[in-house]
Amino acid sequence: MTSLFDSLRLRDLTVANRVWVSPMCMYACEGEPGVVGAWHVAHYGQFALGGAGLIVTEATAVLPEGRVTPEDAGLWGDDHVAPWKTVTDAVHLAGSAIAVQLAHAGRKGGKFRGLPGDEFANSSVPADLGGWTTVGATGEAFGRYDAPAKATADDLAATVAAFGAAARRADEAGFDAIELHGAHGYLLHELLSPVTNTRDDDWASRERLLLETVAAVRANWPQGKPLIVRLSVDDVAPGGLTAEDSASLATRLGELGVDLIDCSSGGLVAGAEYAATPGYQVPGAATVRRLSGLPTSAVGLITSPEHAASIVAEGSADAVMLGREMLRNPYWARHAASALGVSLPGVSRYHRAHA
């Protein structure tokens, strides 16, 4: 029976345990577009000190127009590499592995960040305030956002190339793994789902953009480093993809060099409703794992050590992703280990706390 604190090997990377930090948008690049800074070093470093096995970064755009907000992180330019290297060095020094989530927001990009105290939320940033025209599978808008331009064949080909170039930069920046954001209604997901991809050209082949992106990334990413794909394994939309559909897709992704599926759900269309309860996305992860044979991670209101441990022990997923709970308690992994009677290697400079 696998333990939450057993290591997990993905290609040449051995992740120390199965407690992972889920990607969470931070909207914290407030200087040069896409350039991370000291705040990111502190933010990601705290999780490493707290004992998380793998930390997945916020959505990091492969093109300027692929940002969710103007304050998003990026890897579309070589000037982004050195700042990210500062972050990865800090995480490695504190004992954890780190993956970058590469993303293109598609029609859901270019919005106001909506942090507490901000004047606007859930609407598009106008051009005179730093916004841009987004691109989508079609010209249909998401909710209250501005309508995108329908992506041309050249736009989509350029996006594939941008993901490949960002993968090369991710290696230079010292990342241990890449996660491709193919979930939550962003561009890769938008083309993937029958609900949103109603095109009538060659890109009506719904899996094409994701599969070509995986191939481009794998070609620019060392063979010894793992590649993860985040999927909304259930679209939570009438006529959308189901966990069984996602399992079939995962099989093809595995053949192209994907090593793990990070299982989430929803985000495709505005107004979709579902009950978010502790572990509500675990069944999808279990289905993908069982039918595809690929390792999975599960996310979704997982907060207690006992619950997290049971997910891994029962074989529903190979790792658990924690988001908001990690923000509340960056040392969750160490506290969970203590609660479960497991001894984690301590931080030597903190030896007084562990004596």
Rank of each mutant, 00 (worst) to 15 (best):
S3D: 06
L10A: 06
D12I: 12
D12Y: 09
L13V: 12
A16D: 09
W20L: 14
W20P: 07
V21Q: 06
S22E: 02
M24R: 10
M24Y: 03
M26I: 11
C29S: 12
G31Y: 08
G34T: 10
V35E: 04
G37S: 04
H40S: 04
Y44A: 02
A52K: 14
G53C: 00
E65Q: 15
V68K: 03
A73I: 08
D78C: 13
V91N: 02
A97D: 03
H104C: 08
A105D: 02
F112A: 13
G114I: 08
G117L: 08
N122F: 12
S123F: 07
S123R: 14
P126Y: 01
P126L: 04
A127W: 15
L129D: 09
W132I: 09
T134A: 14
T138A: 11
G143A: 08
D146Q: 14
A147W: 09
D154A: 13
A157V: 08
A162H: 00
F163T: 09
G164F: 07
A170Q: 05
D171W: 08
E179R: 06
E179C: 07
L187W: 05
L187T: 05
E190L: 04
L192V: 09
P194A: 04
T196L: 05
D200Y: 09
D200A: 12
W203F: 04
S205D: 15
E212I: 13
R218E: 05
N220C: 11
N220A: 15
Q223R: 10
P226V: 03
P226L: 05
P226T: 02
V229F: 00
V233H: 01
D234H: 09
D234T: 15
V236D: 09
P238I: 01
G239D: 02
G240V: 00
A250E: 04
R252L: 06
C263Q: 11
S264M: 13
G266D: 01
G271A: 07
A272G: 10
A276F: 15
G279Q: 02
Y280A: 15
Y280P: 12
V282E: 03
G284T: 11
G284S: 00
T287S: 01
R289A: 07
R289N: 08
S292W: 05
L294S: 06
S297G: 08
S304W: 12
H307N: 14
S310V: 11
A313S: 13
E314M: 13
E314P: 05
E314L: 12
A317K: 07
A317Y: 06
A319S: 08
R324G: 15
M326Q: 13
Y331N: 14
Y331C: 13
W332N: 06
A333E: 07
R334D: 03
H335A: 14
A336N: 03
V342P: 01
R352Q: 15
